[in-house]
Write a protein that binds this DNA or RNA. Structure first.
Length: 921
RNA sequence: GCCCGAGUGGCGGAAUUGGUAGACGCGCUGGACUCAAAAUCCAGUGUCCUUUAAAGACGUACCGGUUCGAUCCCGGUCCCGGGCACCA
């Protein structure tokens, strides 16, 4: 019997599905382990070979953990709300739900062929009302909460209202949009509408006017992480800044916890670093400058991380969008300032980024007083200062800040160096080193001492105070689209009012057309009766990240109709032990999820404050494109090795008609009508194609469909090969060059059990050598899987199988554990062989073999190397180092000894049965 | 510009993190079995000198350092990949 992967794979996939082999149970005495993949957005193109990389890795780990006696939760679902389905709907009129269903069916089919051990009974999609009910529910909770800075967590808004009624804002330290102050009397005198507006300043989910990324082409606002280089991530359309009232999530309130929480997570350093940069904590000082405008005095607070340079301030700069800008503009400068503001306003985000080196600005006419020197400095307005960060105003120290320097040069403002010996004739001196000068009491200090000294001074004199700032902004939470979760909010007398919880889910209404209305309102405005008790409902919908922010919780208890997750399920599964997905979510999903989870944690709905304990980023699989070379002006194609002899043009060729860079000539002629009569210049009778590594995409004809690999080599080969390609976290091109190797390995493995037509496994006792082979593999596989070095595990497997093949070992005692160990990687063939060995149950219920070191260790080899009679160091040699190795090593040390002079090397070598006591003097 | 990560044969990549560099796989060369091919098996395969072998020298991007010993640690340079980008 040959290794018939087609029959085998189909058979066992059916078996696993029928028997619900991978169902996870809550009432288990085993320890739990939760392995999660970032669930996919089901696009119309289907899966390519890069998508399953992470899924295979997580599947191997899940299967391994099951063998190790864990109760494993390994679920899968779909992130199904999204822009592509909606855009397709706008173009074709087809309901997004229909396309989404179709795409999901295809994804499922493709995934099933690879043999994943998902518990499909827990599957859900985010666009299902039964699911998004909980997205809406969480939103209502955020709407009904504020963030208390003094207790460091979210609290119900009712508590804040009670405080307002009693004491107004006195003594409160809460996260807010803008600092408000009012008394209890004032609060109690406010109208409902006024109260609602005030509360919006504190709610965690709130509505507020803010400068947003507006994409006119998509007709919607976008979050910061959805914009790349001033273009929308989806579609690549220009994005502009626009002031709009939008729903937002007060993520900034959690900045500190999001940052500090990283410490205890088992994530890669690079990913943590990305989040740290995104959150962007900086320690600085807020200093008040008195500014004189036409004789009128205003206090302007600036933020700086370098108060030590305050003696070098030669001007101040305001953000154009700052609220202070109008007030600080003198009458005679008004026209020019307004002209500048108009100019800034009409720039798109992309232009702003592109022109980041062009310095622009205008003088406001006002002068500020440096609180330390009493000096008068001009106040300028420039777009290089951002309204959204710090206070929207800065003190400029051109000598020691490159941006201030560029500005000063352009507008001829003075540049005063305050660090000894630095040269600022060509560029600013930004480094935090050197001795201070021209700086009053700071003179002579090192910059590193001057920073805290200046902070202390400013605080002592009451001129300002230390301040921690974060770059992290609140998340814009509304989208002007159809295909998303509706907000459970209606407008009663214009007041945003939450829908009662028992009215959830608020389901998406049917509408006639999916595009925005003529008046620019979101598509939901087209819905008939989009009202609640006669009041209009919110017409924007939630963004893509809403549905994916807490989905890992839902898998714990996916069919619960009354809670997001029951306390029991949550306390059992707690959080994700291993999360595998791409780095592209570093500053989006992975921040939002952590925020969302912390919020639910604050309110006591979940028991862990971090959602993902360990995170692995699988690399991207790039495409490997193939080229043919057409001789210019002809229909003649020259093989890659000979192309230098002609003037040629490279053309992408469909990789499906190329194998190992050899072109299938007939298939090529049939590929496109224009190549029907193609002629070829061959080398060694073959046409060799050129190649390049590029992004995997349809237009480059380099997309590899996993189905094709499954057809040709089988799912087990695909799984093994994707893991054998290299380290999981590295990006690498898909290259089928080596795939024959792993396929050969599987066939070899099979032949340990079958010699052509017969099952040949014997009950003969294993020899010491057999056991050594086996246990070396057990030890290696265990260590490697735990560290996700799957490629070296597979190598170890190949070594073991070669070894057993060479020695013609077909003993049950050896092969049975081998099958178990292979099952995470190649589950189908393992299942087949497991049953051939006479087992009734799935190999998934077997136990991972115990590693016995005694079978592999033959010796401990230790050198003690002494010079002048003193032991200088000892060397432990690798356990499997053979005699030749040891001798080579000894030679090396002898050389060393000679080099060093008259010393001796004394080796204590204990190698029972092999090398005993080689002593060199 | 700033912050991470990396650079090892013809190729993908190993190397117990300071101790046999190049495991394993691909590719290539030669051989066995075949009428032949496929499949399978065996041998060789970093570079240089050498008819071959033995033996040797050189080799982990480049330059320098620490060490008895460096792919690994330190300093500098050059490339590649990723992230952030007027965040004061």
């Amino acid at each position: 019997m040959d290794y018939d992967f087609r029959g085998i794979e189909k058979k066992w996939q059916q078996y696993w599905a029928d028997k619900h082999t991978f169902k996870a149970e809550e009432n288990s005495s085993k320890p739990k382990y939760y392995v999660l993949d970032m669930f996919p957005y089901p696009s119309g193109a289907g899966l390519h070979v890069g998508h399953p990389l992470g899924y295979i890795a997580s599947d191997i780990f899940s299967r391994y953990k099951r063998l190790k006696g864990f109760n494993v939760l390994h679920p899968m679902g779909y992130d199904a709300f999204g822009l592509p389905a909606e855009q397709y709907a706008i173009q074709t009129g087809q309901h997004p739900e229909v396309t989404t269903d179709k795409n999901i069916a295809r994804y499922r089919q493709q995934m099933d062929r690879i043999g994943f051990s998902y518990d499909w009974d827990r599957e859900f999609r985010t666009c299902d009302p039964e699911y998004y009910k909980w997205t809406q529910w969480a939103f209502l909770k955020m709407f009904g909460s504020y963030y208390c800075n003094s207790c460091g967590k979210a609290r119900p808004i009712e508590e804040l209202i009670a405080a307002f009624e009693k004491n107004g804002t006195a003594g409160l330290d809460v996260a807010c949009g803008e600092k408000l102050e009012f008394t209890a009397e004032q609060w109690n005198s406010y109208s409902e509408l006024e109260k609602s507006k005030v509360l919006m300043n504190y709610r965690i989910a709130y509505q507020g006017e803010t400068s947003v990324n507006w994409c006119p082409k998509l007709g919607t606002v976008l979050a910061n992480d959805e914009v790349k280089d001033g273009l929308s991530e989806r579609g690549g359309y220009p994005v502009e800044q626009k002031k709009m009232t939008q729903w937002q999530l007060r993520v900034s309130a959690y900045a500190e916890r999001l940052l500090d929480g990283l410490e205890k997570l088992d994530w890669t350093d690079s990913l943590k670093e990305m989040q740290r940069n995104w959150i962007g904590r900086s320690y600085g000082t807020e200093v008040v400058f008195k500014v004189d405008t036409d004789g009128k005095e205003t206090d302007v607070t600036i933020f700086t991380t370098r108060v030590d340079t305050i003696f070098g301030v030669t001007f101040m700069v305001l953000a154009p969008e700052s609220d202070l800008t109008p007030a600080l503009t003198t009458a005679d400068r008004k026209a020019e300032v307004e002209e500048y503001l108009t100019y800034v306003k009409k720039k798109t985000e992309r232009e702003r980024i592109a022109e980041t080196k062009t310095v622009t600005g205008v003088f406001s006419g006002s002068y500020g007083i440096n609180p330390l020197t009493g000096e008068k400095v001009p106040v300028w307005i420039s777009e290089y200062v951002l309204a959204g960060y710090g206070t929207g105003a800065i003190m400029a120290v051109p000598a020691h800040d490159s941006r201030d320097y560029a500005f000063a040069k352009k507008f001829n403002l003075p540049i005063i160096p305050i660090i000894e010996g630095c040269d600022v004739s060509e560029e600013s001196f930004d480094a935090k080193e050197g001795k201070m000068c021209n700086s009053g009491f700071l003179d002579g200090m090192d910059v590193k001492e001057a920073i805290p000294a200046a902070m202390d001074y400013v605080e002592a004199k009451g001129l300002g105070h230390r301040k921690v700032n974060y770059r992290l902004r609140d998340a814009i939470f509304s989208r002007q689209r159809y295909w998303g979760e509706p907000f459970p909010i209606y407008y009663k007398n214009g007041i945003p009012t939450p829908l009662p919880e028992d009215k959830l889910p608020l389901t998406l209404p049917e509408i006639s057309e999916f595009k925005p209305t003529e008046t620019g309102e979101p598509p939901l405005a087209r819905a008939e009766n989009w009202t609640y008790e006669g009041w209009p409902l919110e017409t924007s919908t939630m963004p893509g990240f809403a549905g994916s922010s807490a989905y890992y919780l839902r898998y714990m208890d996916p069919h619960n109709g009354s809670e997001l997750v029951s306390r029991k399920a949550d306390e059992y599964w707690r959080n994700v032990d291993l999360y595998i997905g791409g780095t592209e979510h570093a500053t989006g999903h992975l921040i939002y999820s952590r925020f969302w989870n912390k919020f639910l944690f604050d309110l006591g709905y979940v028991c862990e404050d971090e959602p993902f304990r360990k995170l692995i980023n699988q690399g991207m699989i790039q495409g490997r494109s193939n080229f043919v070379y057409r001789i210019v002006g002809t229909n003649k194609f020259v093989s890659a090795g000979l192309r230098d002899q002609y003037e040629t043009q490279g053309i992408h060729v469909d990789i499906n008609i190329v194998r190992n860079d050899r072109l299938d000539l007939e298939a090529f002629k049939a590929w496109r009508p224009e190549f029907k009569d193609a002629e070829f210049v061959l080398e060694n009778g073959e046409y060799i194609c050129g190649w390049a590594v590029e992004k995997m995409s349809k237009s480059m004809f380099n997309v590899v469909n996993p189905d094709d690999i499954c057809d040709y080599y089988g799912a087990d080969t695909l799984r093994l090969y994707e893991m054998f390609l290299g380290p999981l976290e590295q990006s690498k091109p898909w290259d089928t060059k080596g795939i024959d190797g792993v396929n050969r390995f599987l066939r070899k493995f099979w032949r340990l059990f079958y010699n052509g037509d017969q099952f040949i496994v014997s009950d003969e006792k294993a020899s010491a050598e057999d056991l050594k082979t086996l246990h070396k593999l057990i030890g290696k596989e265990q260590a490697d899987i735990e560290s996700f070095s799957y490629n070296t595990t597979i190598s170890a497997f190949m070594i073991a199988v070669n070894d057993l093949t060479d020695r013609k070992v077909s003993k049950r005692e050896i092969l049975e554990p081998m099958v178990i160990m292979l099952s995470p990687f190649a589950p189908h063939i393992a299942e087949e062989l497991w049953h051939a060995l006479g087992h009734e149950d799935s190999v998934a219920y077997a136990s991972f073999p115990e590693y016995v070191e005694a079978y592999t260790v033959e010796s401990n080899v230790t050198y003690a190397v002494s010079f002048n009679g003193k032991t200088r160091f000892t060397v432990d040699l690798p356990k499997d180092m053979d005699k030749a190795g040891v001798e080579a090593h000894v030679r090396g040390l002898e050389q060393t000894a000679k080099y060093v002079g008259e010393q001796s090397i004394v080796k204590v070598i204990v190698v029972p049965g092999k090398i005993v006591n080689i002593v060199v003097k």
